[in-house]
C-alpha cells in the first residue's frame, strides 16, 4: 500500500466515525418528529461533510458519562441501604 493511501485512510476513518455518530444521534433525537429526523438523516447521508457541522450546532444534551444503569443490582443494594438507615 502506498504511503499516500495510508494517510488518506487515516484521514477518512475519523470522518466516517463522525458521520456514523451524527447519523445515530439524529435517529435518537427525541426533540424532532419522525419526518424531521428522516430529513436530517437524508441530508447527512448524502452530504457526509455536514456531519461535523451538525455535531457542532446540534442542541446540547446533558452529560451522562458512565451513569448507573437501573438493571445494576448494586444500585438497588445502595438504595436499600440508604432507605434502611433513614427509616
Amino acid at each position: 500500500m502506498k504511503a499516500d493511501t495510508i494517510i488518506e485512510l487515516a484521514l477518512i476513518l475519523p470522518v466516517l466515525l463522525i458521520w456514523a455518530i451524527s447519523l445515530r444521534d439524529v435517529m435518537r433525537r427525541r426533540d424532532l418528529g419522525r419526518r424531521q429526523r428522516v430529513a436530517f438523516a437524508a441530508v447527512l447521508l448524502f452530504l457526509p461533510p455536514l456531519a461535523v457541522l451538525y455535531l457542532l450546532i446540534r442542541p446540547p444534551v446533558s452529560v451522562r458519562r458512565g451513569a448507573v444503569h437501573s438493571d445494576d443490582p448494586r444500585a438497588r443494594l445502595v438504595d436499600e441501604l440508604e432507605l434502611a438507615t433513614q427509616a
Binding site: R64, V68, S70, A75
Partner: peptide, 15 residues
C-alpha cells in the same frame, strides 16, 4: 426517602 434509584433512559434526555 432518598432520591429514587438513578437510572439512564435508553435514549438521550429530552432537550
Amino acid at each position: 426517602e432518598p432520591p429514587p434509584a438513578q437510572s439512564v433512559p435508553s435514549g438521550p434526555p429530552e432537550v
